[in-house]
């Protein structure tokens, strides 16, 4: 189910990218798309078992335990931070555009 949810988020993000001409909305759509992707990656590593635990292992548990895949989580953690960076850059570009054209709409800018 989580998989479908993530795909749904991706689709929503794509739809937003396809239809919006507002820069802020485009960036928001991009973020939605990104969240969908992150969730999707997380689901890849999920293990649907009763005894599977989060990959945090204390000394008592250093026997054999079953954990979910930690790698996608680590990757997503990285992806989130990078997403913050790209969003920041995108927003600052949007701010610059607004300063110049006084609009966020792509259709209304361009002609000077």
């Amino acid at each position: 189910m989580l998989l479908y949810a993530s795909v749904l988020l991706i689709v929503i993000g794509l739809y937003g990218l396809l239809t919006n001409r507002n820069v802020i909305k485009i960036i928001l759509s991009l973020n939605v798309l990104e969240i969908g992707l992150n969730i999707f990656i997380i689901t890849v590593g999920f293990l649907d078992l009763e005894e599977a635990i989060a990959p945090i292992i204390t000394l008592q548990q250093r026997a054999s335990v079953i954990v979910v895949d930690p790698l996608p989580q680590a990757l997503v953690l990285t992806a989130i931070v990078i997403g913050v960076g790209t969003t920041a850059i995108g927003l600052s570009l949007a701010k610059k555009m607004y300063d110049k054209y006084h609009t966020f709409n792509l259709d209304e800018m361009g002609e000077e």
Binding site: G45, L47, V68, D69
Partner: peptide, 20 residues
């Protein structure tokens, strides 16, 4: 979904060095 077999993959190295 929920049926991953990461013990064959690259994660297994990380986990086993952690667990045992």
């Amino acid at each position: 979904f929920g049926d991953t077999n990461h013990y064959d993959g690259i994660s297994s190295g990380y986990i086993t060095s952690e667990v045992g």
